[in-house]
Design a protein around this nucleic acid. Structure first.
Lengths: 290, 290
DNA sequence: ATCTACGATGCCGAACGGGCATGGATTGCA
DNA sequence: TGCAATCCATGCCCGTTCGGCATCGTAGAT
């Protein structure tokens, strides 16, 4: 059993097709066909069930598939670990869109100053997509907002962040000293669409206070939410770090009196994957935010 | 990084010497030298520090060593697992000498009847040696007597076994109805030598009863202990399963009155190693003894 | 100073892996 | 029904690789 064979095997399993896998592997289909034949000869039974249009994994194939992934990632990790000097290398950071622009720039700035030879990649996607990437080892760490559906990932709370009420500058509540939940119970809300977990954080807060925000307008960007609020389409709850950076005079931010709405920012990593020293140092940087 | 390279690497690390490793690998030293050079080129740094008379692992080499062992055993396990039909294959059983002849024959008999195509190997060694083998995956399971120094192994108690007093048939205590610890407190003892854990079990029992057996004669086989007892050299404490099988009229076995000396027979397996279905079934057989 | 042990290197042949062309089987469509 | 398309297997060929043999360089040991 050779490492190359395992890589071929996994790619075919992924493509479900020798021909396309061969293309992806930059080799010819006959060569691939032969490699598989050899693997199957070695383990004494077929790993693929050849159908007319595609191939399926046999029982043995499914078993091998699980193991091959372990073996290959162990090998990849080993190479990464040995060549890890703690200074060079790549960090792949995942973060949801309601965190990325407010939290990452400052952190990345200081980190890049310390480790100028580190290559940093940022994946800005939804919670679900990033959790998947984390599981597959496609990102080294992810910055998300709780709750995280439990998977085989390490979830470490970093800090709780207030969600602040944003109002049009000329809103009647703008002059009120204390604004409570009851004041906004019947205000129309502007929210992010349901792919963003922030809207779930907000709705969850509302549910706990036994009200369902009315007449919601839903958009895909926080900046749009803010603009719509300015234009009088409603109010919203916005992460404090976004509120702080907003200087537009046509809307104002207020903390709610009483128990404040918050979201919990967490660091998610995959304990089954190798963490480079660089990645560990970046995580330490993040923990410094606590 | 290729699997063959890793095997070569481990063998050299084991031998501490290219030439001898090459012999062990049934290849020439130049070929091995080249294979290592290639590996080192791939990972960008030497894995061995060449000294005049031998080679040592570098830092990178030590790291690779740990990983290579994981990778190779994962691969070996994968192959074993895939080709595992639950009927054929090999079971490597470890057992200490004071268990082997009394417990194994019956178990092996019935097991062989059920799985005639299973190849069974028995390693009869000391506790320490078997624990090492278990750690290295050189045996699939081991039958030992508690206590087991804690390692990364699964220890499962099977049953407690009484240690019975063995006396010469003409011993003055032979006619006594109840024999207690106090009766044998000053009897000379015949024990196995210190490589056998049974002697430790016996001495431990004695210590708990605050006496130190006197005038010990120590031998390396239970049969010798029994013979020496027959000849009047002293008394001893013998596992019940050995006592039961002993039909010699020149010595007799008696249970001690009061809290009985026992030893606990345990099944030890390595949870980090693949357990073939055959091995699992054998373990089930053993659990049936409880 | 010479010998011995050990790893590295030059050179060569066999084996292996992969490319190209093609075959055989199945499916979809005319 | 027949033809084209798709897909995997096989025959053949070539380049690379791997391992063997011979030899070299070096560092302890005698």
């Amino acid at each position: 059993m050779e490492i190359g064979q395992l890589r071929y095997f996994l790619k075919i399993a992924e493509c479900g097709n020798f021909t396309r896998a061969a293309e992806a592997l930059l080799m010819t289909q006959p060569a691939l066909s032969r490699a598989v034949a050899k693997l199957e000869e070695e383990i004494g039974q077929p790993v693929f069930e050849r159908q007319s249009r595609n191939v399926l994994l046999t029982d043995a194939g499914r078993l091998l598939h699980a193991r091959a992934e372990q073996i290959l990632s162990l090998i990849d990790d080993t190479l990464a670990e040995i060549t890890d000097d703690g200074e060079t290398g790549r960090i792949r950071i995942g973060a949801i869109p309601t965190i990325t622009p407010f939290l990452l720039p400052a952190v990345l700035r200081t980190f890049s100053d310390h480790y100028p030879r580190a290559q940093i990649m940022v994946y800005e996607e939804t919670t679900d997509a990033l959790l998947q990437r984390c599981n597959r080892g496609e990102v080294d760490l992810a910055l998300l907002a709780a709750p995280i559906p439990q998977q085989y990932l390490a979830v470490e709370p970093l800090f709780d962040e207030e969600l602040r009420l944003v109002l049009p500058a000329d809103h009647e509540l703008a002059g009120k000293k204390r604004i409570t939940v009851d004041d906004i119970r019947h205000e129309p809300f502007v929210l992010l669409d349901e792919t963003h977990c922030l809207s779930e954080n907000v709705l969850s807060f509302c549910r706990q206070r036994s009200f369902h925000p009315v007449s919601m307008q839903r958009t895909s960007q926080l900046a749009t939410v803010q603009e719509l609020v300015s234009l009088g389409h409603g109010v919203s709850l916005i992460p404090a770090m976004a509120a702080t950076l907003d200087t537009c005079p046509r809307r104002i931010y207020r903390s709610l009196s009483g128990p404040k709405p918050t979201r919990s920012i967490v660091l998610v990593t995959n304990p089954y994957r190798f963490q480079s020293r660089l990645s560990q140092r970046f995580q330490d940087e993040l923990r410094g935010l606590r």
